[in-house]
C-alpha cells in the first residue's frame, strides 16, 4: 500500500503507467462512445413530444454530467495536493481544467442547438443551461488564475483553493438558479410532468454517459503525461526518453 503511494510520487513511473492505462482505456472508451451514439442516433424511436431532436440528449446529458463531475475531480485533486502536497494531485488538477471546460462547452452548445427546434430560440435562460454557463465560468476562472501566476507551484495551490471554494458554492449556485428559474419561468416553455424515460432510450444514454467518463479519463491521463514531461524536461529519464524516440 505505502509503496503504491511512494510510486505515485515518482514521475517516470506515473508517466509509464498512465501510458499503459491509456493504451487500453482509449480504444474501449471510443468503442463505447461509438456504440452508444450510433445506438441512440439510429436505433431508438423518436420522442413522442420532441421528435428526432431529442437525440441530442445522448451527447448533451453525458457531457453535462461528466463536466460537473469533472469539477469535483478537480477540487478533490486540489484538496489532496493542498493537504498532502502530492505532486500527482497537482498535476491531475491542472490536467482536469481544460477537459472539464471543453465538456461544459459541449453541453452548452448542444443544449443551445437542442433549444432551437424545441423552444424556437437558440438560447433560453433556463435553469439548467444557466447553471452550465456558470460552471463554464468557474472552469475558465481556474484556468485564468493558473495562467496569471508565474510561479507554477503557487498557481497550483491558488487554483486548489479556488476550486474548493467552487465546490462549496456549486450546490448553492445550482439551488439558487433553480429557484430563480421557477420564479421567472415563462409559461410557454414549461414542460409539464416529469417524463419517465423509456428503457429503450435509457440504455444507450447510460452507455454514452459511461463512454464520456472514459473519454474524460483518457484526456485527463494524456494531459497528465504531457504535463509530467513539461515539468521534468531537465531530468535524466526524460532526456533518455527523448533520445530513445528518435
Amino acid at each position: 500500500m505505502w509503496s503504491f503511494f511512494h510510486k505515485l510520487g515518482s514521475p517516470p513511473w506515473l508517466y509509464r503507467i498512465a501510458g499503459v492505462l491509456l493504451r487500453w482505456l482509449l480504444p474501449v472508451s471510443l468503442l463505447a462512445l461509438g456504440t452508444g451514439l450510433i445506438w441512440g442516433l439510429l436505433f431508438t424511436a423518436p420522442d413522442f413530444r420532441q421528435g428526432n431532436s431529442y437525440r441530442i440528449i445522448y451527447i448533451h446529458v453525458p457531457a453535462a454530467v461528466v463536466a460537473l463531475a469533472g469539477y469535483y475531480v478537480m477540487a478533490l485533486a486540489g484538496a489532496v495536493s493542498l493537504i498532502w502536497k502530492m505532486k500527482v494531485a497537482d498535476i491531475a488538477m491542472k490536467a482536469t481544467a481544460p477537459v472539464g471546460a471543453a465538456l461544459t462547452f459541449i453541453a452548452l452548445v448542444t443544449g443551445s442547438i437542442w433549444g432551437k427546434p424545441t423552444w424556437g430560440t437558440w438560447w433560453v435562460w433556463d435553469a439548467r443551461i444557466t447553471s452550465m454557463l456558470i460552471l463554464l465560468f468557474l472552469y475558465l476562472g481556474v484556468i485564468a488564475l493558473y495562467e496569471a501566476y508565474d510561479n507554477k507551484a503557487a498557481a497550483g495551490r491558488a487554483c486548489a483553493v479556488l476550486s474548493l471554494v467552487g465546490t462549496v458554492n456549486i450546490p448553492i449556485i445550482y439551488k439558487s438558479v433553480d429557484w430563480w428559474y421557477s420564479l421567472h419561468q415563462p409559461a410557454s416553455i414549461k414542460f409539464t410532468g416529469e417524463s419517465t424515460i423509456d428503457p429503450t432510450m435509457l440504455y444507450p444514454l447510460l452507455l454514452s454517459i459511461i463512454a464520456f467518463y472514459g473519454v474524460f479519463t483518457c484526456a485527463l491521463l494524456g494531459n497528465m503525461r504531457a504535463e509530467i514531461l513539461a515539468r521534468e524536461t531537465r531530468t535524466g529519464w526524460v532526456r533518455r526518453l527523448a533520445g530513445g524516440e528518435v
Binding site: 488564475l145 467552487g166 458554492n169 449556485i173 439558487s176
Partner: peptide
C-alpha cells in the same frame, strides 16, 4: 487574497468572483 500578488489582478478577480456573486444577486 488569491490575486493580490499578481500585477494584473483587476480583471482576473472579476472573473474569479462573479460566479460566486450570482446566488447573492438572485436572492
Amino acid at each position: 487574497s488569491l490575486t493580490v500578488g499578481l500585477r494584473r489582478g483587476g480583471m482576473l478577480i472579476a472573473l474569479l468572483v462573479l460566479p460566486f456573486y450570482m446566488p447573492v444577486l438572485i436572492f
